[in-house]
């Protein structure tokens, strides 16, 4: 239900959509037929329809570009995997941490008021800890992982890491 609430808002969250219903469109049938004829005549005189169709782009990316893109993708994939399913103003974000010796891992972030016991991550069958959180797009977030309830760490795979001012570091994530 919370997601429905989020989806109903625009990216700025100001809920600027209008509630005004459009006025009914009433029109005389014979006038409609006349204007339809006029429009179709205009289209026929404009020439073949293919003029307006987009042509396939036959340019291909260079091998170097493809390799660079692949390398960048691989470098980033270890940190946060974005959910494939995107909906309106929110994105499903999967946070992943490889911590084989941890007994528990929690996610604390500005989006959960830094609560250390809000989001418990789950160990997947193949080892990493993970949790999926719906977050609003067009924003940036700060987060940490908490290992065994006491050790706060920044995401070791995240490229954006900042000094938190309290003797540690946080990771940031932009969506």
């Amino acid at each position: 239900m919370a997601l429905d609430f989020l989806e109903s808002r625009d990216a700025d969250g100001d809920g600027s959509a209008s509630d005004d219903a459009p006025a009914p469109f009433l029109r005389d049938a014979s006038a409609a037929a006349r204007s339809s004829d006029a429009i179709m005549a205009g289209i026929r005189s404009a020439g073949p329809l293919t003029t307006f169709l987009p042509r396939p782009d036959r340019r291909g990316p260079g091998l170097v570009g493809l390799a660079a893109a692949a390398a960048l993708l691989i470098a980033l994939s270890s940190l946060v995997t974005f959910g494939v399913m995107r909906s309106g103003a929110t994105v499903e974000v999967r946070f992943v941490l490889v911590a084989p010796d941890a007994r528990s891992v929690w996610l604390a972030a500005d989006f959960n008021q830094w609560s250390p016991d809000g989001y418990e991550m789950h160990r997947t069958s193949d080892g990493p800890w993970e949790i999926t959180v719906p977050l609003r797009k067009d924003k940036s977030y700060s987060y940490n992982f908490i290992i065994d309830g006491e050790r706060w760490i920044a995401d070791p795979g995240a490229p954006s890491r900042v000094d938190d001012g309290f003797g540690g570091a946080s990771s940031s994530l932009s969506l």
């Binding site: 919370a2 989020l6 929110t90 999967r94 989001y119 160990r123 959180v133 719906p134 609003r136």
Partner: peptide
């Protein structure tokens, strides 16, 4: 988020 062997909590409610 329900998958992956959730042991407690499952998918978090929206955090916005």
């Amino acid at each position: 988020g329900q998958g992956g062997g959730s042991s407690g909590g499952g998918r978090p409610a929206s955090s916005e």
